[in-house]
Write a protein that binds this DNA or RNA. Sequence first.
DNA 1: AAGCTGACCAACCGCCCATAG
DNA 2: CCTATGGGCGGTTGGTCAGCT
Length: 323
Amino acid sequence: MGRPPCCDKVGVKKGPWTPEEDIMLVSYVQEHGPGNWRAVPTKTGLRRCSKSCRLRWTNYLRPGIKRGSFTDQEEKMIIQLQALLGNKWAAIASYLPERTDNDIKNYWNTHLKKKMKNLEEKCSGDDDLFSVENGHNLSSTNSTSRGQWERTLQADINMAKKALHSALSLENSTPYIKQETPAPVSTYASSTENIARLLQGWMRSSSTNNSENSKTSSNNIATTDSSSCDGTPSAESKGGMVLMEALESLFGLESFEPSSSDQLSQTASPEGSKFQVEIKKEENTNSQLPLSVMLENWLLDENTIQGKDDLTSFSFDETADLF
DNA sequence: AAGCTGACCAACCGCCCATAG
DNA sequence: CCTATGGGCGGTTGGTCAGCT
């Protein structure tokens, strides 16, 4: 017997969100803040499940979401964090605050999984270093001898260290949470911008086909988003700016702009901070933790991250005591 | 031009966890 | 301690579109 559904199935709308619904949701969140999702459908009049509202906000409407294709650097990070953490998309997303876990998950499933499989095929015959299909590398070595396992582990650790070190030293161009570097605002889309784009796409689609149902609008928008994902304002996004201004005056949404990295880290990735807090809590019992958790602790430890030189000084010998 | 197929991605679903009462 | 509830997460589905035959 599972949990009862989060809301009545009867009368609840499903499927793609319309711009009108998005506006209603954004204006509600602007007024009340994210949270208490249960109350959102009743207070906004949205005929949507509360969960659906939360998902729509976190995956699409919240400020600080970057859309469009992934950069090489992001791709690298995802691959390596996935190898290290497994399919912990929320945890991975905490390192890429401008990406949602859903985005990362989708990107992994559609692009990287295949890529890694090809790579694995190429590398078959070596060892299972590239075995990422089942998520955690570390767990795939159960049947190997201890020595082999340790070598594999050492390689994993080195790989992770290199990955993080290179990622952290890449001109600080990625707005990692812990670094608290100002986010490149141009690459972000605030809620206002998101909505503006939504409206724009919707208007465009309805102007070309007035009878077009709103189902397709959200997909049109998604395509539009990709076209301007590089942060360079396209002609379309300039049009969006006009709408944005209109919306700003309508809802007073300028306060949504991630004016500081602190705000960004709070709004863009609450999961990350929560994750880090959880890890912190676990540190007290480190001595009894499995290595995977120890590694996570090490990777996420604030001091380690901040003093990134330390990353390379981690030795497998330090972990030997664990066994 | 029509049909087919695979890629992509937004959204849904079910389970789990934390917490308030 | 137990239960109900809200929120979060990962897996999966289904609609749309582009490319190919």
